[in-house]
Write a protein that binds this DNA or RNA. Structure first.
Lengths: 204, 204
DNA sequence: ATGCCTATATACCGCTCGGTATGAATAGCG
DNA sequence: CGCTATTCATACCGAGCGGTATATAGGCAT
């Protein structure tokens, strides 16, 4: 009886595809096209499965997107949380900018930022999608604000510059970086943008 | 014979709607929804005309969008060219930021920037749309770069900071401003973003 | 071997999309 | 008046959309 140690006993016919691999393929399609423009036909063909399999495994298109968004945050946005460990506010900003730059310069992944693309893509149908993305961004923002509050307590911030304002300023640059990256900017242009941002970053 | 002074003698049945008013309505729909998500049904209903009238007057959806984009640049982005008249690079930046902020805070117009929305919305179908928007942005960028070259010649820029890099930095902030404005940021948050940007703007 | 349960594949659903054929209405011109 | 030219309104087109009904294939326990 070795069935005890195994994860479970899947009773019916076993699934013929790897659900995580398929989700990764779906992520790439959403990333390239945005939520609305990614059709089920393109998704299923990229994932190598048929529509009923997709619906059985993921629910529907919106649920699939949310799971892809989870994967995106977990794998591609890991640098955002790890950046908070930097010893100074300036170090946090630099890590965030360099992390975002590295992502845009990666040749294997699509350009642009899935979050930025999805938030800007605002068909009336996709209102709930937009809300989900904005909500996720808000939690990242909150974490960054908390980190900058520590920095402020440590006396790192110039007077009259609130942690929240600095956070939104940095986010604006990151969003601009992703947008320009998705619009055909070259790697040198983007790294110049990062360099300029670091050059003007406030020092008390 | 007073037909000489008139523009022309339109022979057939006269058009029953004002083509410029209709274009303005179409612009609002594109602005709110982006190119792809703006359906012909919503467009015609907002414009108060039927589909055949729309096609006869504007060609097709893409041509309508381009004409709406013309109108948008002419009316809503006028501050971008007038900002170049500011006496210093810093003044140019301030005028651009304040102009963008004013647009986001206007209560009558949709939030966000039509250009930003349309460039980020990149279904494979809308590739040509995206290219048109990016091309227009490039010409604005070029104008700003030229203005900052003058500033550099006047000794306004810090060493090692090229006009092109400063332009893309400023554009990134403007894009971030539009994106946050389109994602539900409040007016005070956006004006804080502008204030922070001006606070860190390089002074030689 | 026989049910049982699940995944697969095909074919299909209603709906909306951008775009158009068609015929009636309305003007100028002879 | 008739003729021509243009716009208007209705109704329609093929195609693609997200999503599903149905039937078959394939592992498990009994």
């Amino acid at each position: 009886m070795n069935s005890v140690c195994s994860i479970s006993a899947p009773k019916g016919r076993p699934r013929e595809f790897d659900i995580d691999v398929a989700l990764g393929k779906a992520l790439l399609v959403f990333w390239r096209n945005g939520y609305e423009a990614a059709s089920m036909t393109e998704l299923t063909s990229a994932m190598g499965i048929t529509k009923p399999s997709l619906y059985a495994a993921f629910g529907n298109k919106e649920a699939l997107f949310n799971k892809a968004l989870d994967l995106y945050e977990r794998e591609k946005l890991a640098y955002m949380t790890s950046a908070l460990d930097a010893p100074s506010a300036r170090g946090v900003a630099e890590r965030l900018l360099r992390g975002a730059l590295e992502m845009q310069m990666s040749t294997c992944d699509p350009k642009g930022c899935l979050g930025v693309i999805s938030a800007a893509t605002c068909g009336a149908e996709a209102e709930t999608i937009k809300a989900a993305v904005v909500k996720r961004r808000a939690s990242s923002e909150a974490a960054l604000i908390r980190r900058f509050e520590e920095a402020q307590a440590a006396g790192e911030l110039p007077e009259g510059m609130t942690p929240a304002a600095l956070t939104r300023f940095l986010f604006a640059i990151l969003q601009g970086l992703a947008l320009q990256g998705g619009s055909g900017a070259t790697c040198t242009e983007l790294s110049e943008l990062v360099a300029t941002s670091m050059a003007v970053w406030p020092t008390k």
